[in-house]
Design a binder for these strands. Structure first.
Lengths: 337, 337
DNA sequence: ACCGGTCATTCCAACGTTGCAGTACTCGTC
DNA sequence: GACGAGTACTGCAACGTTGGAATGACCGGT
């Protein structure tokens, strides 16, 4: 069906290898030959067979991207950014979903044969922990995202979670709030974004001389809108008073903000809100949601850049690189004075 | 590095072909041999090399999915559903983004060499039109999504746009509204979701004996929240009166609903709202948004099923199949009496 | 006229797999 | 006790590509 190197070679009256050389822009080719071969390529519509190339050269031009769920806006926007960054480097992305924090599934995915035709993997776990770090010592290039696994042998792109969460909390404090609830903690966990952001929250409180009140911590299962809504309802029902809410991500904050308003609280007058992630929808909620911009494009671009570097250099780095993206506080209606 | 059939064969003391036969569960193999080979496979951690397999057999187990932008919640949720449906059939998905309706980019994507290692494509165009239908006569299996291209030579999974839009409009009418604005029309276009849904809107009006008022049609560029917000602002500024809004998708409706509320209109008392797509976030907006559930899982599953069928049967169908998913009206606070 | 060196191109082998053809052995049948 | 019909395996070639070595042509210098 499709034209092969052999067909082009016959058509142009040269050897197969010469055609291959033209395709790969090898130096020593006469201009006239190059033109003739190129003409044949165009005429026959030759496209290299990637399977064959990959079999021979070991490269596919495909990178894997494994993340929990695309239906969560955060991961949808992240995937968008990563696919664009990959495209800029002439790579395509093969997408694998691992579900909402299923550790076993994440680990199984790491050795899935589906990754065979992939040059490397960008992996955003949600269920694994630092105890599993050694499992990331897989035989192929990998870049890690997120805050679940530290001390692994692979490059890691993440963000200043503690500092950003602290900034978010200080933002509310600077607006005069002292009873700041936090929604999205994971009870009993010692690692992950929830823990780090909670730590930032506590650091901000202590810096401002505000005592930490465990009654103001809303625990959740996942970080969906639904969980934020449920946690807010529970907190309101518990009778605890608060004048601000820090949602550990935007989905939680949005779910919580709705419930607070339904319960008759005015935002921002009675309760201020801030989230984390800078999702597009935070610009259109009522009121618009203040949030932390985690520098998604920067994260995406860096992840792809590091992965390409590892693919080209071969094997695991002696000292894995850890990259921390910059963040910004976005001040919107939900925390306006 | 990785074990090959050759290694396993040597280890088990059989021929390469026998190992291959075991892997493929060929009938005529002695149980004892099968066990011995299987043991060697496990011991050496053999995984088939997909590039080699694909070179030889022409199949990769990868399908392409080309859609506009993952950062739009609708496509994020759609991609999620398609990836899950593909996984159920042991396929992986290679994701390609074509941007917000760039016809040339969509056409270029169709012949991209990146699709080489793909067995087929699920394609959701946003810029092409029925005039381009012939371009879909590509040499590989394809399933089309959406409402841009009709009469193409490939299988097509779409939905009852006209009927669903009509149902949405009738829903508002049944709640006593007569001045129903519609947000999301594409001025001058004659095809696509916007046209079909607008048609459904007009059919509903005419069935209810309500005259069509062009002043109640809000034109937009894209179907993002921002566009809905801008269109609503323009409509309010124009001074036209309305007591309900049909957003041609949820993002438009949500953007518009915010603007309407900021302008002092109460939802649903002064203005009712309904959207289209049943995004997760419509359950958590304030108020929650009534919408049309387009049966996303059904669409995803059918698309993958049809694609697999085409891949297995080879070539283009003599008569392409057109599948229309069922829809449901979801009644929420934004249109509550 | 011959040599060394660069340039342009070709030849060969391999990547790991699978389809097909073939072989050798076992068995029940007449 | 030879014969077809299975059963259990093996061997070879090929898929389309690329890396490296090999070949040949050409050119300036001696």
């Amino acid at each position: 069906m499709a034209a092969t190197l052999r067909d082009v070679a016959a058509h142009a009256g040269v050897s197969i290898k010469t055609v291959s050389n033209v395709v790969h822009e090898f130096p020593h080719i006469k201009a006239s030959t190059r033109e003739r071969v190129q003409a044949s390529i165009d005429q026959l519509g030759y496209k290299p067979n990637i399977s064959a190339r990959s079999l021979r050269s070991g490269r596919t031009g495909v990178i894997g991207l494994a993340l929990p769920e695309l239906s969560l806006s955060y991961f949808g926007e992240l995937a968008d950014a990563i696919i664009q960054a990959a495209e800029r480097r002439h790579l395509v992305v093969l997408l694998e979903q691992t579900g909402g924090g299923d550790r076993d599934r994440e680990i199984a995915m790491l050795s899935s044969p589906r990754l065979q035709l992939t040059d490397g993997l960008i992996f955003s776990p949600l269920g694994m922990s630092s105890a599993d770090a050694a499992l990331l010592n897989v035989g192929y290039p990998m870049v890690l995202l997120g805050e679940r696994v530290f001390g692994s042998p692979v490059d890691h792109v993440t963000m200043h979670n503690v500092e950003a969460a602290k900034a978010a909390t200080l933002h509310l404090i600077s607006r005069g709030r002292r009873r700041i609830a936090v929604i999205g903690a994971h009870e009993g966990e010692v690692i992950g974004s929830a823990v780090l952001r909670l730590q930032g929250y506590r650091e901000a409180l202590s810096e401002a001389g505000i005592p930490f009140d465990p009654a103001l911590v809303g625990n959740v299962g996942l970080w969906h809108r639904r969980d934020g809504a449920e946690a807010m309802r529970a907190m309101i029902d518990s009778g605890v008073t608060f004048d601000a809410v820090f949602g550990l991500n935007d989905a939680l904050a949005l779910g919580a903000m709705r419930v607070a308003q339904v319960a008759g609280l005015r935002v921002p007058e009675d309760v201020m809100f801030i989230g984390f992630d800078a999702l597009d929808e935070t610009k259109y909620s009522l009121p618009t949601l203040s949030t932390i911009d985690p520098g998604r494009d920067e994260i995406a671009d860096t992840a792809v850049r590091l992965l390409v570097q590892r693919i080209e250099e071969g094997v695991t780095p002696p000292v894995p690189e850890v990259y921390l993206a910059d963040f910004t506080v976005i001040d919107r209606e939900s925390s306006a004075l």
